[in-house]
Write a protein that binds this DNA or RNA. Structure first.
Lengths: 254, 254
DNA sequence: ATGTCTTTGTGAACGCGTGCACAAAGATAG
DNA sequence: CTATCTTTGTGCACGCGTTCACAAAGACAT
């Protein structure tokens, strides 16, 4: 999970556990798909399969929201869509600013999954004067000098940081000072924020590194069955690899 | 966290807990920064602050790797960089394919954080014949007809899916059949994979929805104190703790 | 060598999340 | 109305992860 809080004293979510909150969007997505197919009701078993979770977990999650099911029948799809949307706060409009319009920022601006969930890209902001005035995803990029005004005028409380890591903390501070209280950080940096501000981080290279760990472990276990006892440098199965690769002993300090 | 396994019986990671593995890249990033500043040693307290975690947690994490510290002094930066890199499998080269070269796929191809961590974009693949042959991030996009050959020839075991959701499962199956055993999924779909294949998912809109939940909660608590109802569409329940839900019957089912 | 100081490594307690298993609740048929 | 069947909602136990707190270990000064 890309949970990126800097300082979480405890889950003060007044009842709903954090792990449950993180799954609600998953359920919502599955339910929306069912709704579009005009499926009236769904059992916990079916919905759990569609969302890729355990059915007992799903039922327990829903129990935190209230008793919205009917025993012997299941859950009313439309009703549940509404309840979850309301719980997540998606029945209202959330203006969002994206700061740092590089490749990733532009991709996010073009991403369709936001608008369909109640999120509206209120502004694109970049520090490069060359970028200001350009159109990205049909929105005019504005210069970061106007950040405070933009946030204030649009009532923005959620900011997305897609800047280079070097300026992320600085941008973060300006966002917070201007009134932003939730930040989605794509920059590979640890942001420090005052209490009351939520930060979630998405780090693309971290996800790959976690995959690499398991991949290496798989390769190591595989090799352990054939010959060597220890995963020394983890022999890759296909050696069609170009490049020197290999065991780079590096500098072993004292 | 963005743990995206479909069925995880238990992490048999031979000792190292999954939560620790997920933090190793974080430590590595902080250590790399220290290394570049030629800092010779670092205490658990300092490093923990730089990585944004508790120092006791960091020490326990490192204890799973072995005793690499010196009491009274701290950890040798260079040595720890090497040990963590080795543990994560970053001392070897990981060829990666990106399938689906839209805005996001192109952004990832351009992302610098991969190459610097031992990941090499071996190929960009797209189903659109118009895309084939075009250059993205200095790499020629290839058609998905050649997917199996590309994976086989390059010994690719990690695939990144940035396709539209409708074709993600199908692409996933082709990747797995061709030999890929780790998948990073950006498509908003639940992928089902056979045992032995790892899937991690990154869903941008889910992260925003989680932020929206907390944002709404903050607004609700604030409103309960000042009376100024900021949220318009959503009537937040206040004071009455739990109770019979916040009315709003909507389409109450039978 | 001895004592003091710093920092690691870890035993133990605690809390959260998960999943089983089942009773309660409602639908449905006779 | 009674019986049966389906599916929810949840009490409970278990395991993982987090954190505290402290003994052990080494550095360093005298």
């Amino acid at each position: 999970m890309a949970t990126g809080r800097t300082h979480r004293p405890a889950t003060r979510s007044r009842g709903i556990p954090e792990a449950t909150v993180a799954r609600l969007p998953l359920y919502l997505r599955a339910l929306t798909a069912l709704s579009e197919r005009s499926v009236p009701t769904v059992s916990s078993e079916e919905l759990a399969a569609a969302a890729g979770v355990n059915s007992a977990k799903l039922r327990k999650d829903f129990s935190y929201l209230g008793s919205y099911g009917t025993r012997g029948v299941g859950y009313d799809v439309e009703y549940l869509v509404y309840q979850i949307s309301r719980e997540l706060g998606l029945t209202q409009d959330w203006p969002v600013v994206i700061v740092g319009i590089g490749n990733l920022g532009a991709a996010l601006a073009n991403y369709g999954g936001f608008a369909s969930r109640g999120f509206r890209v209120a502004a694109l902001i970049d520090a490069d004067p060359e970028m200001a005035g350009k159109q990205v995803a049909g929105i005019t990029v504005q210069h970061s000098d106007d950040m405070e005004r933009i946030i204030s005028e649009n009532g923005v409380s959620i900011g997305v940081i897609t800047t280079p890591p070097g300026v992320a903390q600085q941008v973060c501070e300006r966002l917070v000072a201007a009134g932003v209280t939730s930040i989605l950080n794509f920059a590979p940096t640890v942001l420090s924020v005052p209490d009351g501000v939520d930060v979630r981080k998405v780090d693309l290279s971290i996800e790959l590194q976690i995959l690499a760990f398991h991949e290496q472990r798989k390769a190591g276990e595989e090799a352990a069955l054939t010959d060597g006892p220890r995963p020394v440098a983890a022999t890759r199965k296909q050696s069609a690899d170009k490049g020197p690769d290999g065991d780079v002993p590096a500098v072993m300090p004292a």
